[in-house]
Amino acid sequence: MTGKQAYKTIIVDDEPLARLRLKTLISEYPEKFEVIGEAENGEEAIEKINHQHPDFIFLDIQMPEINGFDVLKKINYLPKIIFCTAFDEFALQAFDTNCIDYLVKPLTKERFAKTIEKIDQFNDSETTINIERLVEQFNREYKKNDATSIPVKVGDKVIFIRLDEVSYFQADEKYVSVLTKHSKSYTLDSSLKRLEIKLPDYFIRVHKSYLINKNLLKEIRKHFNNRFVIILDDYNQSKITSGRSFYAEIKSMFEL
């Protein structure tokens, strides 16, 4: 980018750790990107993009309420776009001609370097994006089951926990705890509502404070007052009592 100014850039992602990871990767290319803002939801993204007119946005696709495609439909200024997604690569093959690139989470330095190569080869005539086509493709091909891991901040680093190793998620006031089948515990700066949107279908809500991995289900016992005791096949043989409002759904799901 000799002789060119760094691209003014906005990062859009509802997960703080994902934004942090992107900022870390972007910081290694200060001659290419100047991060001028972040947005943690679709509404904030629309406001900042329309107001600040960035050259680039790194855009998460699946966000609560207003997803990435809805953001694109509601902005009056179209920057260059790099999609970020937790879905596998095959589901995004059709997007290659509609955006500069897409990054599949968890993000890696090696994959980000390829994005930089694409930016260097980019032709400004390729910025047109067919939003309706993207929405149609999203609705037809995207499946939550493609997510395979979740980022967790531990000290000054971010590690990735395989979802098939997670026994359950437990909400406690502001934070959510992640319990693995090997009895390791981590803390997420998130909410069960957000997780429920992003997690694969084998995670089910059995209580307002619990999302369990039904692939680790060992036993279900009827409990009093329209509840069940759920025993998971993990190191602790965890026992979780379901909420009364989930009785009918659990009974129907497991034909109890």
Rank of each mutant, 00 (worst) to 15 (best):
S238Q: 03
K174N: 15
R140G: 00
N236G: 02
E255F: 08
H182C: 01
F112Q: 09
E110C: 00
E249R: 05
L211P: 10
S183W: 02
I161W: 07
Y77C: 04
G68P: 09
L72M: 14
V206W: 10
D70Y: 01
K198H: 07
H223S: 15
P79K: 05
F246W: 05
V166Y: 03
S190T: 14
V35H: 00
I220W: 02
I230S: 02
E43I: 08
V12P: 10
N123R: 11
L78I: 01
F112L: 10
T241A: 06
A39D: 07
Y235V: 08
E219R: 14
A18Y: 01
P30C: 08
I100T: 01
R140S: 11
A18D: 06
H207T: 04
I11Y: 09
D201W: 01
L134V: 03
A45G: 07
N130A: 03
Q52T: 04
Y247V: 09
D124N: 11
A45Q: 09
E196K: 12
K251L: 11
A91Y: 13
H53G: 00
E165L: 05
P16R: 08
E136K: 14
K218Y: 12
D60P: 06
T127R: 12
V135Y: 06
I57L: 08
E65A: 08
H207V: 03
L216H: 12
N213M: 11
E110K: 12
R133L: 14
D156K: 13
E89Q: 14
I49N: 11
M63W: 11
D172N: 13
Y186S: 08
K181Q: 13
K73D: 12
F138P: 01
D14K: 02
V35G: 06
K114G: 07
A39R: 05
D101N: 12
K157Y: 05
E219P: 01
I66Y: 06
Y235I: 06
N236F: 05
I26F: 04
Y29A: 04
M63K: 08
E249Q: 14
F112A: 06
N76M: 00
K239V: 05
L78M: 15
F169M: 09
T115N: 02
K198P: 00
K218W: 02
T187M: 15
L211G: 11
K118I: 02
T187G: 01
